[in-house]
């Protein structure tokens, strides 16, 4: 019984810690993007604005939510909570405190990828629950984007799984230490890393792939009718996706929590390396997002179908030839 209570405490701590880390990731993204664009960025709430995302969340939670007539109120509320819950569950599979996640089991990498796919569906379904034109257009764009990035990203992650020879995360994190016919797997998988990075950026709707919510074209698109606590939760969902998406890249390509332990070896080194690598990935995403203007929807689809998809197919062929041949 005592063990279950301790586990409950760990889970509660994990959830609260994850949400706070997601707010920190958003602050990191906004602050860095501000500096890249010669702006100050968040600065009022907390030292150097570090509490701004939390302040935004509290403010939105205290605003009245308004929805158009004919909205499926219950289902929108459910999806707002379900989306965040899904990201929290995904985080249980990331190897933060050790070589496997909190709920790690043989084959957990497949479930991690599958949950990521389900998370994308929320952005397509939610706008459809409002009888409003802008969210409907945003949902259509999101659906098109989903079809474009899902296949290349799946192929890229599959190539990592082929090299690892396992669908278990505790084995996949060792891919970065492998060599294939004298070639380090890290170099062999660079195309897959690029494809996954682009796919994650499209998944979390960061510039230049934020066509589903293009403010200047479709007035925030899919989230135009979200307000109050719903908007707060969907913003939190986006922050969590940034964090978890970066965590997936770290897990599949950058060795997860593995790293040198110069003194006092222990689980804190795993946490340190995983967090550091995750924020390096967020840094790269921020640099790209703040340097490139938004693509049009046709440009995005063209990039994914004509450039990213062939790159991922080439990656699979390279892996099969070099590793399997």
């Amino acid at each position: 019984m005592m063990e279950y209570l301790i586990f409950c405490g760990e889970i509660i701590g994990w959830v609260i810690g994850l949400i706070l880390l997601a707010f920190f990731a958003e602050w990191f993204f906004r602050k860095l993007m501000g500096h890249m664009q010669h702006r100050v960025g968040p600065k009022l709430a907390g030292p150097i604005g570090i509490l701004q995302p939390l302040a935004d969340f509290i403010k939105l939670m205290n605003k009245e939510q308004i929805s158009p007539e004919g909205t499926d109120e219950f289902f929108v509320d459910f999806l707002a909570v379900f989306g965040v819950w899904l990201m929290v569950v995904m985080s249980f599979f990331l190897p933060v405190f050790g070589e496997s996640g909190l709920l790690g089991f043989p084959g957990d990498a497949i479930l991690l990828i599958a949950l990521f796919a389900v998370g994308s569906l929320i952005y397509i379904v939610t706008p459809y629950l409002f009888k409003s034109p802008y969210p409907t257009i945003g949902a259509g764009r999101r659906a098109e984007l989903y079809l474009a990035y899902e296949i290349p990203m799946f192929l890229a992650l599959a190539s990592v799984i082929f090299v690892a020879g396992s669908v278990t995360i505790s084995d996949i994190i060792y891919v970065s230490t492998k060599t294939v016919r004298g070639i380090p797997a890290v170099i062999l998988l660079i195309p897959a890393l690029i494809v996954t990075l682009i796919g994650v950026m499209a998944r979390i709707k960061k510039l230049p792939f934020d066509v589903p919510e293009a403010e200047t074209e479709i007035a925030s698109g899919w989230e135009a009718e979200l307000s109050g606590r719903r908007l707060a939760f969907f913003n939190l969902l986006t922050d969590l996706k940034l964090l978890i998406g970066s965590g997936v890249i770290v897990t599949f390509f950058l060795g997860g929590p593995l790293g040198p332990m110069p003194f006092m070896p222990g689980w804190w080194w795993y946490v340190f390396w995983f967090t550091l690598k995750t924020f390096i990935v967020i840094l790269i995403i921020t640099l790209i997002a703040s340097s490139v203007a938004r693509f049009r929807i046709d440009q995005v689809l063209s990039i994914f179908w004509r450039e990213v998809l062939p790159l991922s197919i080439i990656q699979i062929i390279i892996v099969l030839v070099v590793w399997g041949g």
Binding site: I11, V15, N62, Q65, D77, V88, G228, R229
Partner: peptide, 22 residues
């Protein structure tokens, strides 16, 4: 526990938000 507790926490946080009275 790992699946239910996060959902309960999130539902509690969500229910603390302001609802539409209109």
């Amino acid at each position: 526990i790992a699946l239910v507790i996060p959902f309960v926490i999130l539902v509690i946080i969500y229910s603390m938000g302001k609802k539409s009275k209109r």
